[in-house]
Design a protein around this nucleic acid. Sequence first.
DNA 1: TAAGAAGTATACCGATCTGTATCGTTAGGC
DNA 2: GCCTAACGATACAGATCGGTATACTTCTTA
Lengths: 207, 207
Amino acid sequence: MRRSEIRDHLLDTALRLFNQHGYHATGIDLIIAEAGVAKTTLYRHFETKEDLILAALERRDEGDRNAMRAFVEQHASDPVERLLVTFDFLETTVRDKQFRGCIFVSAAGEHKDAAHAVFRAALMHKRLVIAYFEELAHAARFAEPKRIATEINLLHEGAMAVAQMTRIAEPARQARRMAGQLLAAEERSPSARGRRPANAKPHLAQG
Amino acid sequence: MRRSEIRDHLLDTALRLFNQHGYHATGIDLIIAEAGVAKTTLYRHFETKEDLILAALERRDEGDRNAMRAFVEQHASDPVERLLVTFDFLETTVRDKQFRGCIFVSAAGEHKDAAHAVFRAALMHKRLVIAYFEELAHAARFAEPKRIATEINLLHEGAMAVAQMTRIAEPARQARRMAGQLLAAEERSPSARGRRPANAKPHLAQG
DNA sequence: TAAGAAGTATACCGATCTGTATCGTTAGGC
DNA sequence: GCCTAACGATACAGATCGGTATACTTCTTA
């Protein structure tokens, strides 16, 4: 392994173990053993375990949001449909056999102080995801894109929490159907309704 | 403190600290210090820390579900309204300044192995809550009470996850409005529709 | 009221935790 | 090709973890 790759390899290994066992339950010794590097090397890249966690969350934040954007742009062009397609992306996430809940919610759950850097990093991820939903809701010309975004986000969070316990992908599909039902009843700007009547898209109600 | 009260006092102290700091981050020494008992006493009541966690979750499971039942029965008699009132109970929960996320989701998040006793205890709580929702959905004569129950549950989980991060109560109200919107569009058995037309209850759509 | 169960206080155990120190080796940029 | 920074390996420090042992005291109850 080239030296320039070590940092990312450490982050990926740590993310895998944090997801598998949790943050407190994953020791530094396990991380370096799984990554196959010396402890000195880890502490040359990251000052403390908390720094490692923060860097790992940052990496995952970027990766996840980029992946969602790419998935959405590839699977739908209609802006309303794009909001629903985010649930298809979610389904691919929870369908992974290694899925054990949202790592950001888990991170906040193990660092519950709202002033803690790890909590704030997790919160920032959620805010950026909601901002993306709002961007989609705005493009779809919904009358209240902010509210639509938080509703979509609430359904995402619910599906992930349920899937964390049941370890099945159905909650993601159920959340998609619920979102379709709700969006079909939402007001959109006249120009949007003119081009695409809100009640004329069966996929909206059927998810 | 009477000796018969010590066990419950230990469980309440442990629950408070688990909620405040998490399960791994809460040490035995802190629990006994906060409870004001000797370590020997704790280990006379609970064989291991895991046993303490399990007993604490069990206590909280019973308390929470009883509280929700009592709240619902006190605040609504109409069976559809009762499903929505569960979100008012949720709002009282997340409005507590000490709310830091669902302790069962956090427990599962820190004990991610689906075969782990703590994970299974958390899962059992969720199943019992869904069973109660199904009971309410059945009483409301919805055509698919099982699906309705899981949808209500998904909204509950979403609201709790969002409130865990934002530390505000609004997600609970938003989830109630979403539930009202969804239930208003649901089919109910003829006798139910005969007595109470599904589309004639404005509170359903407005939450 | 006497006996026994359960409480307190404290010292201790071995394991594990994060993080550091030491030192020989290796790889990459000039 | 050489110099230096980064690597691997290992030992270790100091704190904390869950859990036990011991010795003394207090409450409960038959």
